[in-house]
C-alpha cells in the first residue's frame, strides 16, 4: 500500500515538452510510473517518444483527462505560468496535482490552494514530488536509491528526503512525500501524517522539518491526538541566523518564531524522538521499528 500515489495512478505531465519536463518524464517512466499524457497549450496532437513508449501530448488538462483517464498531474511549468497551469488542472477536476516548480509567487500559491480546496490535493510548490517505490513516482525523487517497504516519510526538503531514504534503503518505504520548502504549500505535514496513520501499508513514519513557520509545532499537536504509529523526526536549521532565508523561500527564523529548537521541543514534548543528525534519525527509526 501507499498514500496518494499507487501503481494504478495514471499520470499526466504539464510542461512535458520542455527540457525539465521531458528529462523527468523519462526518469518517471523508468521508475515504473504509468505516464499517459503530456499537456502543453498549443502543442496538442503530437506525441513524444521515450524509448519504446510514445506519450501523446494534449493542449489542455481537461482533454488529456478525458482521453486517457489521467488522475495525477505533475507540473514542470516555469514559475510565471505555474499559477495558471495549476488552476487549469484544478478546473479540470484532477484529484492530485504535484507542483515541482521552484520560485512560484506566494500569492499564486495562496490562490490555487484556495481554489483547490475540497477538489484537488496539491503537493508543493517547490517540492521534489512523491514516490511509492516499486509502484509509481510523480516528480523528481530518484527511484533507485531505496526500495519498497513499510516506512512513510514526509519532508520539506528534497535532499534530506533522499538522504534518509538511502540510509533506510534496506527497510524500504511505502511512500515518501516532499511537501516543499515554500511558505505556502498545498499539502502539509499533518495531511501526510493522517494519510500514513490510515495506510495499512505503513508501520512507522519519518517526519523531516526545518526552520520557518510553525508547521512542525502543529504536527506535534496532531501526532499527540491522532497518531499511534511510531514517528521519528528530524529538524534542520539550528545554526541558522535570525532573519536570513536559508535556500528555501520559507526557511527563515523571524524574531523568536520558527526556530529549530522550538520545533524540536514541541515534538519531544509529545514523545516524538528527534535525531540530532540524519544518521541518528535513521538509527532511532530502526530502534523504534524493532522494539
Amino acid at each position: 500500500m501507499a498514500i496518494f500515489l499507487t501503481k494504478d495512478s495514471r499520470v499526466l505531465v504539464q510542461g512535458m515538452t520542455g527540457a525539465e519536463g521531458s528529462r523527468h518524464t523519462a526518469r518517471m517512466l523508468a521508475a515504473g510510473t504509468d505516464i499517459v499524457a503530456g499537456v502543453t497549450p498549443g502543442k496538442g496532437g503530437r506525441s513524444l517518444d521515450f524509448g519504446e513508449r510514445a506519450v501523446p501530448v494534449f493542449g489542455s488538462v481537461a482533454e488529456a483527462m478525458a482521453e486517457t483517464g489521467a488522475d495525477v498531474s505533475v507540473v514542470f511549468v516555469p514559475p510565471r505560468f505555474t499559477g495558471s497551469a495549476v488552476e487549469e488542472a484544478v478546473e479540470a477536476g484532477i484529484p492530485l496535482c504535484v507542483v515541482i516548480t521552484e520560485g512560484v509567487p506566494v500569492h499564486d500559491a495562496v490562490r490555487f490552494r484556495a481554489l483547490a480546496s475540497g477538489r484537488t490535493r496539491i503537493i508543493g510548490p517547490n517540492c521534489p514530488g512523491l514516490i511509492s517505490p516499486g509502484q509509481s513516482s510523480a516528480g523528481i525523487i530518484p527511484a533507485d536509491i531505496t526500495s519498497a517497504g513499510r516506512i512513510g516519510l514526509v519532508s520539506k526538503s528534497g535532499t534530506l528526503t533522499y538522504q534518509l531514504m538511502y540510509e533506510l534503503r534496506d527497510l524500504g518505504f511505502s511512500t515518501a512525500v516532499g511537501i516543499g520548502g515554500d511558505p505556502v504549500v498545498g499539502t502539509t505535514h499533518i495531511d501526510c501524517l493522517k494519510a500514513f496513520q490510515d495506510d495499512p501499508g505503513t508501520d512507522a513514519i519519518v517526519m523531516i522539518g526545518e526552520i520557518g513557520g510553525d508547521a512542525e509545532e502543529r504536527a506535534a499537536a496532531y501526532i499527540a491526538a491522532n497518531v499511534t504509529k511510531p514517528v521519528i523526526a528530524y529538524v534542520a536549521g539550528f545554526t541558522a541566523p535570525e532573519g536570513r532565508t536559508m535556500g528555501h523561500a520559507g526557511a527563515i527564523v523571524s524574531g523568536s518564531s520558527g526556530t529549530a529548537q522550538a520545533k524540536k521541543e514541541a515534538l519531544e514534548a509529545v514523545g516524538v524522538r528527534v535525531g540530532r543528525t540524519p544518521s541518528e534519525t535513521a538509527r532511532l527509526l530502526r530502534a523504534g521499528v524493532s522494539s
Partner: peptide, 25 residues
C-alpha cells in the same frame, strides 16, 4: 558546500554539533 537547502542546513548543524562554527551556508 552542499546540494539542497535542507541538506546544507543540516550540514551546518552537524558541524556545530562537532564543536566548530560553520563559516557559511
Amino acid at each position: 558546500i552542499g546540494n539542497g537547502a535542507g541538506l546544507v542546513m543540516s550540514t551546518l548543524d552537524v558541524v556545530a554539533g562537532a564543536g566548530a562554527a560553520p563559516a557559511n551556508f
